[in-house]
């Protein structure tokens, strides 16, 4: 959102304690940290990692849904899904641009993704087996993403916070279109309702995992909260999501696939069962159902676009050279 060219002075040169204290004081005063402001190296690293993982997630997230564009059951559904997938592409671009203000180039970030060195949200390594998955992804995956992203609109990093404001505005259409698809199936024939339930059964637990490891073993939470990159803990957001979603499922007659789920009158929260963190770690480490397919699809898209990027640059170069030639 601001140019890397502006970052020409070495803002990371002196991580002195005086600078760090001043930085923390600005954070505590709810000031936003902008591209040219001094920031600790660790803050810059944390933000680059988080924003780029977020951008990669948007881009890889286009794949499971893109899988159903040509098979959407009506023109209305097709147009909406196409618009949603375009939005994800746009979100990825807003976020890469926000990461670039921290002094990294989009090319480097894309390179990290394609080389398998960068992470993206574990949820996109699950396959979309039926049309109902498109409904449940919009409702739950985008719903979980919104829970995560709304607090990020107040993130201490200005470019990231501003990108998130745009993303959140667009994301609520995604969730509503997903819920509408799920609701339509749930109120349809017995077979359609079974499809919706099956999709919910497969996506429920991976969606709870989207909020990240439990607070007891999350690595980055403390410093993220101190720097106001993050405003709520993983478990707090997960609980918020469960509390919001369970009644939505019940309203359309679907069952949450968790025998331990119960409403706790005392706290007013839905208490959920044990999450399979081994599965989460396995998917994150690259052994989910679709990790290899996703990376292969991104690599192919990038390689197939190579000639387009080269041609565009060559054409721009030719146009630049032309007036000079005329003058000579």
């Amino acid at each position: 959102m601001y140019t890397q060219g502006l970052n020409n002075h070495d803002a990371t040169a002196n991580d002195t304690s005086a600078n760090s204290e001043r930085f923390q004081a600005r954070i505590d005063a709810e000031e936003r940290i902008e591209a040219n402001d001094w920031m600790p190296k660790a803050y810059r690293r944390l933000l680059i990692r988080q924003i780029s993982q977020h951008a990669h997630s948007e881009i890889v997230g286009m794949l499971p849904e893109g899988n159903w564009i040509t098979r959407a059951p009506s023109l209305r559904r097709k147009a909406a899904l196409l618009a949603k997938v375009q939005d994800e592409g746009g979100h990825g671009l807003y976020l890469y641009a926000a990461a670039e203000t921290l002094g990294v180039s989009r090319e480097e970030l894309v390179d990290q993704l394609l080389a398998g060195r960068a992470k993206y949200s574990s949820i996109f390594n699950y396959p979309t087996l039926s049309w109902a998955d498109i409904g449940v992804i919009g409702w739950l995956v985008d719903g979980a993403a919104i829970m995560n992203q709304i607090p990020l609109c107040r993130c201490s990093n200005g470019p990231y916070a501003r990108a998130m404001i745009r993303v959140c505005k667009e994301e609520s259409f995604h969730q509503r279109q997903g819920y509408e698809i799920t609701l339509t199936l749930a109120r349809g024939t017995a077979e359609q309702k079974a499809m919706a339930q099956d999709a919910l059964d497969r996506f429920w637990w991976p969606c709870l995992m989207m909020f990240g490891p439990p607070d007891s073993d999350s690595q980055h939470s403390d410093i993220s909260i101190q720097w106001k990159v993050k405003r709520f803990s993983n478990d707090a957001l997960r609980q918020k999501f469960v509390d919001a979603t369970v009644p939505q499922a019940h309203l359309i007659g679907l069952e949450i696939p968790d025998p331990a789920l119960r409403f706790d009158e005392a706290t007013g929260h839905w208490v959920y069962g044990q999450i399979d963190w081994d599965e989460f770690r396995q998917v994150l480490a690259g052994d989910g159902p679709c990790n290899r397919d996703r990376l292969a699809a991104r690599r192919k898209a990038h390689a197939d676009g190579q000639w387009v990027r080269e041609a565009a640059m060559a054409y721009a170069e030719k146009r630049r050279a032309r007036p000079a030639k005329l003058a000579a």
């Binding site: 890397q4 894309v110 390179d111």
Partner: peptide
């Protein structure tokens, strides 16, 4: 190896008649 950098542009949009163009991001 990363691709060579494709130039970066700042984007400004006039949202309504009578308002100034405002920075929205980059491409």
């Amino acid at each position: 190896m990363a691709d060579p950098a494709i130039p970066l542009w700042e984007v400004f949009i006039r949202s309504r008649s009578g308002l100034a163009h405002r920075h929205v991001g980059s491409v």
